[in-house]
Design a binder for these strands. Structure first.
Lengths: 206, 206
DNA sequence: ATTCTTCTTGAACATTGTTCATTTTCAAGC
DNA sequence: GCTTGAAAATGAACAATGTTCAAGAAGAAT
């Protein structure tokens, strides 16, 4: 017996179009920033009417939020790929991987963190949850390094440390904040993690 | 001999209006966020036409940027008010004051950090410089604490540390990132600075 | 083939940034 | 104080862009 639902021709087209719209929107955001994203441009590039975009995503925020959702998913996947062999190495790896990902997809990450909803509608919970889950990825290695510490405190520490790294990277990558030469940023982040771990009483890698 | 330029009635009105427009724009951003700022609302509240707003600020970005400029000026003033008696205390003070200011004016700071220009016009240099100068305020106390360190390294450390604090605070204050209870944030920032200073080999306050 | 449902379309509308010809206001010269 | 010229204010018109919806097209169901 086959559980796979028969996909109608209609659904096929719908799905294909949906993916296409998202791909186009993501491309525009990545290339020229969220502010350059226009419904008509997306519709035209996707070969459909603006109405179809609305039909599929409800409103334009819907498109943006879906792209953002996929961004945080891709980020999480990348971060989960960091080896968990040695906990200290893992922490370095998480920071370095975040930097790498941010540098590759700066405009997509800015869209994720900077997009504000119309009026006062709340940002979708599932995206927030995913961001928080990503920022909690430092939890397991920290638990291994600080076996005697309170679990709640480690959870807080994990988010704090990741938020700190996020701040360093997101400001460091603003070309406009000419401050930091990009190749120096990696070293800078490493140094930062290093110092902070030392402050936690954790010995560096030998 | 009086160097003060006689101010004509015309200039008086112009200046008064300019201040009024800025006050109104700032109020709207602070209360409802940058995305809720509309030319017509500002013009109506200021009792003038939209044309006058354009006449005074060139374009709408001009209004936003002027508000942002004043925000970073106010921030800098507050940060400069932190006592410089003890360098460690000063570092705590800078972090705590930044948190305080951010909590009081969250939407204004988000406008400062998140506003993107139309097209690819560059963000005004003077504002960027002022932000960087603010983030360099940790430099003097760090120099006192690490007298043997390279000055360039301290400059980098200052920006890094302040960026880290910025990351913790800006994410921590997003109501949407329910993560951190606000009153806990202060403690969290303090803890963070504490740990990092320890990592730098700096003893905490007795 | 017919009917029914659903999706698609794109013109019309709504909102909001921007321009500019006209009018108003003010200061300077007489 | 009247005239004149420059500067500013006005707001209607325009442009760009998000949103809606009645009509039509396309596919599914019978």
């Amino acid at each position: 017996m086959n559980n796979v639902q028969e996909e109608s021709l209609r659904d096929q087209k719908k799905n294909r179009r949906r993916l296409q719209i998202l791909e186009i929107a993501r491309g525009i955001i990545a290339a020229k920033g969220l502010r350059s994203l226009k419904v008509r441009d997306v519709a035209e590039a996707a070969g459909c009417s603006v109405g179809s975009v609305y039909n599929e995503f409800g409103d334009f925020d819907g498109v943006i939020l879906t792209v953002n959702r996929e961004t945080v998913q891709a980020l999480t996947a990348r971060l989960r790929g960091v080896p968990a062999d040695d906990p200290v190495r893992q922490l370095y790896g998480l920071a370095a991987t975040y930097l790498e990902f941010f540098a590759e997809h700066a405009n997509l990450l800015r869209s994720l963190f900077e997009h504000r909803m119309e009026d006062d509608r709340p940002y979708p919970d599932d995206i927030l949850q995913m961001v928080m889950d990503a920022f909690a990825l430092m939890h397991p290695p920290l638990v291994r390094l600080l076996p005697d510490a309170d679990d709640v405190k480690i959870a807080l520490l994990s988010r704090t440390l990741f938020s700190a790294v996020h701040g360093i990277i997101s400001l460091g990558l603003e070309e406009r904040m000419v401050a930091v030469p990009p190749q120096m940023l990696r070293q800078q982040v490493e140094q930062f993690v290093d110092t902070h771990l030392a402050g936690l009483g954790i010995l560096p890698l030998q």
